[in-house]
Design a protein around this nucleic acid. Sequence first.
DNA 1: GAGTTTGAAACT
DNA 2: CAGTTTCAAACTC
Length: 906
Amino acid sequence: MDTPDRPLAPAASRAEVTLLSSSSYAALPSFPPLLGGSPVAFSHQRQGLVQVASRRVDRVGLPCAAMHCRSAGDPFRWSRRFLRLLPSFISACKIQRPAPFASAGPVVRFGGNRRRPLPRPPDSRDNATRRACRGSPSPLYALLDCCSTAAARFPVTVTARSARFLGDPAEPQAAAREDRGVPLRIWPPVAEPGASRTASVPSTWRRRPRGRNRIPALRYAPTVGKDSPLFRFINDLSPIEPLKSAYAATSLQGYQSINITSISSIFTSPHDNPHKEPRLPKSSLAEISETGDCAEGTDRGKTSSKSSNAVRLFACTTTVTQETHTVTHSGLAEHPDGPCDLSQPSGQFNPGSPDHNKTPCHGVRSDLKQDKCTSKLEAVQTIKNTLEKRKCLFSTDIQLMDGSQPTKDGDDVLGCEWTDLIPTTSGELLAYDTSIDEHHRGVQLAVNNAESCGYLLSKLTGDGDPSASSTAYYQELMMGEDPMDDAQIFQDGQQTISTEEIQDNIYEANGCIPPGYKDPTASALVPVSTSEHDMPGKLLSAGENFTHSDSELLELPVDDSEGFPVNDHVSSQSGSPQKKRRKAENGDDGESCKRCSCKKSKCLKLYCECFAAGVYCSEPCSCQGCLNKPIHEEIVLSTRKLIEFRNPLAFAPKVIRMSDTSQETGEDPNNTPASARHKRGCNCKKSSCLKKYCECYQSGVGCSSNCRCESCKNTFGRRDADIELTEEMKQEGEETKSCGEKENDQQKANLQSEDHPLLELVPITPPFDLPSSLLLKPPNFSSAKPPRPSKARSSSSRSSTSKATETIRSRKFSKVADSGSNEEMPHLLRDANSPSNGVKTTSPNGKRVSPPHNALSISPNRKGGRKLILKSIPSFPSLTGEASSSSAMNNTDNKLSAQPLALGPS
DNA sequence: GAGTTTGAAACT
DNA sequence: CAGTTTCAAACTC
Ligand SMILES: [Zn+2]
Ligand SMILES: [Zn+2]
Ligand SMILES: [Zn+2]
Ligand SMILES: [Zn+2]
Ligand SMILES: [Zn+2]
Ligand SMILES: [Zn+2]
């Protein structure tokens, strides 16, 4: 974790599966930010393979679970192993569907899109390919292999397009023809619309490769009936009680719980934990690991000879599957609100019992509540301890030495993790995300609980026909898939893929939201209709991996103000929100009240001023479908993190002091407010930087060379003037250097860039390691009262003054803000840096607390209350420079200890 | 309040 | 990375 690019230690000779702390995870290069704060991750060091399960949010900010895999060199090596875990993962996620879709099983979609086309399935006859895929015709096959295993217990539906990947590339339709006994459905049915056709796994899929690359075929468990001895054996052998943990992971408290408790236990031998121990025999887990590693083995034949192992593996899978299956069928429909048995000893778990499935949440909740009772400080400390223990990344051995509970086998850990830590969710989207970087191409696979989604969709849209919605959903899925034409990628990928991300977007269901959060304020995520249908379950959202179409899908659940009383103020507010807003806006108090009025962004994008400012939306907002609320803290933070991941500076202060010199001088004699500038500058074309359309102007700062504005007339300073000034300063600064005239923009730009690293603050999101619940205080926020930041805002909203005056103030303020000194700086900001300060932050990010309207004290037109977001205030003094998120996150541990409570993880 | 303009953010 | 689309604020009427 010291260095982001630190190679995954190939170290241990044996397969090591360990948990990664969030910070450790953060150290992994090219991995998306760990969202949700759950260190639900593990790595497999051997051969540089790292597999991580974590929590994150999808494109729209909805929580999801993600699995990331990284393997050095061989892009497919991990797939086997990883996939073998898939069933467990799915199970742990407890796919729950509303009655109408109870039996469809997860939908599997091999994604890809135009930008990142799905790799073409390799020709199964190609030895090289087989080698690369570890015996499978392609990673997709391997994946499906796994799914099919799961399917033995519950059906898996594959989208028609994806079905093409099931068969021998030479015979695309093979999948539909051959029946291997695996209940695999293809959707939509090719034949009769509306009907699902049962397809089977193509023989090629499981065909054992011939020749030297021969790899033991996956051992498919025969379909095991509940009555079968095997089943009973399994049942007795490994009762699963993942729900508890799994569920826990879903909620805020859950994170806490996991961080503090579950994780620790993971390192404990299964036997140490009564709850877990029974779940999977160690041997089973080990077996999973080993068999999963078939990639590593050179001699497949030997492996296959281990029949007993095979059985165990199966047992593991089956058990998990079984549970899921049960849940799927009986959980939602039959026991809508019934408490679940999760809290009960795992031994009591009866996979076949409907009781078990009821609802995953309650038992956990109670546990969570307990955790919640823990003093924050205590919790934090615990976390710290935990983190400490986890500092040794990738090394099980080290952890053991560290005093953690000895883990007999890394795989045990693995097993526990998957079953215990994965958040409960309703649907999942697994994807080999190719987006990490160019080098890392991969295959995208989506396993989604499309039906649930469709169901909800129908509910939300008022569509009485679930199937219709479902259809639409599937169509969406389909749309997301790329035509097979671009196929060359596979080969390329084979060559270049070194990192792959498997992303599971598991959409949180309302059921996953702790009652506490849910009861007072309806969650936007919870459709009203849900309760009606007893769907404890879950609201699904589309995953970020879905292409364009999903976003639409996503919006429905949260965006339908009509259907969602839950929705914000808008719905609850009396009178017209807009009106209110206007009023406030224009009124004197306006400055303090005006907030966003987002309609489509759910206030989870930078479009939203509140979100951008790092504050929750509040009463004054007139947003619709807002998720930027304390009750959605997790989502908010996750989204924030995601955005930050994409653009580390996304939340960085927009206005910064341009140079140290100006700071020291205190004031720049020049009329040009050199002390502060908009970091990224504006790009105005028509406003001449004379209106608030211009960010520079709005911020009360002059334009600079950073700007690309045209015909700049910014009253706070024109771009050209700034350029000149910069020039001069530069000259002065560097005595030796004397360029008479202006340097070209490029030069200036360079100069500035040099300065920036020192001045800019990288808005590093606080560590997710900390349970967000500890960090933020949602509750107090929901009140009409705007977040503290409003204070800052008020400061900025002084009486209007002449522009000259404003300019001066602006400068001054800017300086202050930049210097970080701040009287005017919102307390929160400071809080963020002072650990001792236990004050809760209402700000999601805990840093930039300025409300949307914070502006430099002076804003151009006072009238409407300036909207300048006081982003100029640095939250984290020195994390800079490195733009890479991974590097930014390296300090997680440190930050953690340094700033225990004040900051919300963001 | 409705409608237009604007440029950043998001997307491809 | 550039071109396009989306978005919500700023602005106009
Ligand atoms: Zn908003
Ligand atoms: Zn808002
Ligand atoms: Zn909002
Ligand atoms: Zn401008
Ligand atoms: Zn500008
Ligand atoms: Zn300008």
